[in-house]
């Protein structure tokens, strides 16, 4: 916002001193004044207004307080912001970024913990980016603006408490590549560590930031040297990141495995939530099972 004074940012409860439900925007309203607006609880309207403003060349960021509520903006994203540039034969561009916290492990229950990004992966004209704790989220946000397309910018909420870390060096000939995004990157790093210590299985963690569209070439390049592939996502099983990776990687003929959440709503009880969602244990277990396949 400092670099480009056309940028505006709005969302629910984002003004100081509160600074947003997850404090991501703390300090922004103080610093940028009228360029930061608090909005009514009208997710469809605030995304659509941002898209309309963006269509006039003015980059706009909207925060959706919980990712679970992106369903309320689905029509604006699917039938308007992403569709109009194409059907209008590229007479308009929509530099719109929709930032939203997804994900569980916080005990928030079934409607405040989901990873719903897969509902939007596959939508033509949309880019879906996901932050992880091994890359600078600010740099990723800058990339989002450079795209000049609508972007769904996913921030898994437990990552808000993390500092950016360096990804451990990968082995040259990994036994297993762990393909993952968001929170699952740090889970995979922990699983890789345990697998090397306890099982002498050496893994390469492959974090993906642009989960839609997936860059097939770079994914294939990253996985070339690996014997096996395990795809890990926090959302529920089926029609998701795992399926998309399988579609792009099938031709490599490598044994593949998948880790995802159980296909039911996220339970309230902490123990039950942990069991429903992917865990380091489950990644370790599935990685070992890959050896039984071959």
């Amino acid at each position: 916002m400092a670099a480009d004074d056309r940028i505006m940012f709005w969302g629910e409860d984002i003004l100081d001193p509160y600074g947003g439900a997850f404090k991501v925007s703390r300090g922004l309203s103080k610093r940028f004044g009228e360029r930061v607006l608090t909005t009514p609880i009208s997710e469809a309207a605030i995304v659509g207004i941002a898209a309309g403003r963006a269509m006039r060349g003015l980059p706009t960021v909207v925060e959706i307080m919980f990712g679970d509520f992106v369903t309320l903006c689905a029509d604006q994203i699917v039938n308007h912001a992403t569709k109009l540039p194409w059907v209008y034969n590229n007479q308009v561009q929509v530099p719109l970024v929709i930032r939203t916290p997804m994900g569980g492990y916080r005990g928030y229950g079934a409607t405040h913990s989901q990873s719903l990004e897969k509902m939007f992966c596959g939508v033509p004209g949309l880019t879906v980016l996901a932050v992880n704790s091994y890359t600078d989220p600010g740099a990723l946000l800058r990339e989002a603006f450079a795209l000049e397309t609508p972007v769904l910018f996913v921030e898994q909420k437990i990552l808000y408490a993390r500092f950016v870390d360096a990804l451990p060096v990968a082995p040259e000939k990994p036994d297993v590549a762990l393909v993952c995004y968001g929170t699952m990157v740090e889970f995979s790093v922990q699983a890789a560590h345990r697998l090397s210590q306890e099982e002498e299985v050496y893994c390469k963690v492959v974090p993906v930031q642009q989960i839609w569209p997936l860059d097939e070439m770079s994914l294939v390049r990253e996985l070339q040297s690996a014997e096996r592939v395990l795809v890990i996502e926090e959302g529920t099983n089926g029609y998701g990141f795992g399926g998309e990776c399988a579609r792009l990687l099938a031709r490599l003929g490598k044994p593949m495995g998948f880790v995802a959440a159980n296909p039911h709503p996220i339970p309230n009880s902490r123990v039950y939530e942990d069991r429903a969602l992917p865990s380091v244990d489950r990644i370790v277990e599935k990685a070992i099972q890959l050896f039984e396949q071959t």
Partner: peptide
């Protein structure tokens, strides 16, 4: 679904209204 200069249309009832507010703001 037509567009030329500053004219736009879309076929989803009501969906264009937020976009109109956005261009009004701009």
């Amino acid at each position: 679904h037509i567009c030329w200069h500053r004219f736009h249309s879309n076929g989803v009832q009501g969906g264009i209204v937020p976009l109109a507010l956005g261009t009004a703001m701009a």
